[in-house]
Amino acid sequence: MSDFSSFYEDRLMPLIDSLQGEKKNIQKKYFRYLVLPFLILLLIVLFLARSSLQPSFIFFLFFIFVFVAAIVHIKISGPYMEKFKNTIISELIKYVHEGLVYDHKKYIPESVFRESRLYEHRIDSYKGEDYISGMIGKTWIEFSEIIARYKTETRTKNGTRTQWHTLFDGLFFVADFNKKFSSDLIVKPDIAERLFGRFGQKLQKLNVFQHGELIEMENPEFEKVFKVHGTDQREARYILTPALMEKILNLNDKIKKKINQDISLSFINSKLYIAVPLSTDLFEPRIFGKEVVKAEDIFEYYSYIKLMAGIVEDLDLNTRIWTKM
């Protein structure tokens, strides 16, 4: 811990301080280009309201304003955000592991997200940022923030109503697994069994929408937390050894302490995919308020990077004693 605080003091603080001026500058710009125009607009509207103004026209004016404001917001804060990520977050990532590279604009592509078979639902909107990748020992990893959503349309009296649903929001992690295999294996939190016990297990067997067949593992604790589906019973056990199941449980406990949710994993084409649900946006600076970023934010970001990079060790992925190098 003291290591990290000295790193924070010596390396990050100067970088953070150097952004302070820029931040003040954009706060001024916000006032000049957003707050002031808004107040003027408000005054005009109030003034015109006396002379019978159509409410729909007022609404239209505000709509235009919000639209322009969004563009102005990006214009103003964009360079500042970029600088924050390219210096401070970049430095932080290098501190966690020398082998990691950061690209805040990139993200895990939708095709890879799809390959994981963790979320089989149709996706209508797929976004991401903060891509981190590199070799940790003998293992290649990559992860980024991802938000995948789909929409539903329901007919109402006034036409159709579109609703957006979040399929996944969080950190999506991919690693090269240390064993070679060709079947698909999907490990997801087991909601049915926790709610309904043995009966839930029966229900799972009937689930026709799930890819592959239900595989029962001999570790009762693992079975309580996860449900396992796969296309090959034997290969599923080749991948999920008793030792790995223990390690996954430990990793899940560790992550659950932070986010209070279970992770999902899948093993496909000799790759390991892990979905860590998370509703907070990581690696962002503050725009309002005094500081560029709070020390606790930085520590939070650091802990997440460490957690994700630590998966390699937690799941022992650098042990490469099998035929796959």
Binding site: K179, E218, Y238
Partner: peptide, 12 residues
Amino acid sequence: SQISASRRTYNA
């Protein structure tokens, strides 16, 4: 590893 996986599958 394969033997151990096969054995566990058999037992299941």
